[in-house]
């Protein structure tokens, strides 16, 4: 089926893709190792004396930020998973015509919620969080983040729940298992890949989120990773080498998660993807 010409085509495409995606990565690493003046005078050169100036400056900030980010991202991911799984299950069950309508309405609503531009939700959330006394607290930020990522997580997870065959549930029913029992012992195991994908998605998204973090975290809290990254760009100066050094430091945990998740992330989507 595949000619040698096709093989060559594949190789060319792979090389092009690798170049397109490694060049920015290489650029980040190279420039994080440049001194303040080198990063400006020769941003494109690969020949320079490496300097750890930038790393020295940002290391402590970076580590502190990673700690905050880990807390926020883990909590948000866990909470989203906790909420999205039963919801995806419920939205995948076919019970009655009435329920079908509920499902359709909910899915439409979930889509609409994703249309709202995030910066525009900050002001309304200020009022909400202040009313509940959650402004400037970690739970407040977590709730805001959860509401931000939950609609997408449900939409991502639902197809996995839909593809669980009804026959399995019926068998469980005959055995006298309650719905909750069936959910735990049948749905959950079969949603494994889906949950894993949602977990990775939400973790990645929460890791990069900074608008809420900057606005809703308690004063004096160490900013999370992306907040510290945003701090590097200000009116008086932009520390490019510091930004890139921070990027390298703060992407290390992401890389660890990624190494762990990559195979499932890449192949897990094969299961039915985002239907």
């Amino acid at each position: 089926m595949k000619s040698s010409g096709h093989k060559a085509g594949e190789t060319i495409v792979k090389i092009l893709l690798i170049l397109t995606y490694t060049t920015p990565l290489a650029w980040i690493i190279l420039n994080s190792l440049k001194s303040d003046s080198d990063v400006l005078t020769k941003p494109n050169t690969v020949i320079f004396t490496p300097s750890f100036e930038a790393y020295n400056t940002v290391f402590l900030d970076g580590v502190g930020a990673i700690f905050t980010s880990l807390q926020v991202s883990l909590l948000v991911t866990a909470a989203v998973l906790l909420l999205a799984t039963p919801t995806a299950y419920a939205l995948a069950t076919k019970v009655s015509h009435g329920w079908n309508r509920v499902v359709t309405a909910t899915l439409t609503l979930l889509l609409i919620l994703q249309l709202v531009p995030q910066p525009m939700t900050v002001i309304p959330l200020y009022s909400v969080l202040a009313t509940w006394g959650l402004l400037g607290t970690l739970p407040g930020l977590i709730l805001a983040d959860v509401a931000l990522f939950l609609p997408f997580a449900i939409m991502l997870l639902r197809p996995f729940a839909v593809s669980v065959p009804t026959a399995v549930y019926e068998a469980a029913e005959i055995d006298g298992a309650s719905r909750w029992r069936a959910f735990l012992s049948i749905t959950l195991p079969m949603l494994r890949n889906g949950m894993f994908i949602v977990l990775s998605f939400v973790f990645i998204a929460a890791w990069g989120e900074f608008v809420y973090a900057i606005n809703f975290l308690p004063h004096g809290t160490v900013f999370p990773v992306s907040g510290v990254l945003a701090q590097q760009i200000s009116v008086y100066s932009v520390g490019w080498n510091r930004l890139m050094a921070l990027a390298v430091i703060t992407c290390l945990p992401l890389l660890a998660v990624f190494m762990f998740a990559q195979k499932r992330l890449v192949h897990g989507l094969s299961l039915g993807a985002v239907k």
Partner: peptide
Amino acid sequence: ASTKIFIAA
């Protein structure tokens, strides 16, 4: 494993 994930979460 998934139940573990869920409980861990």
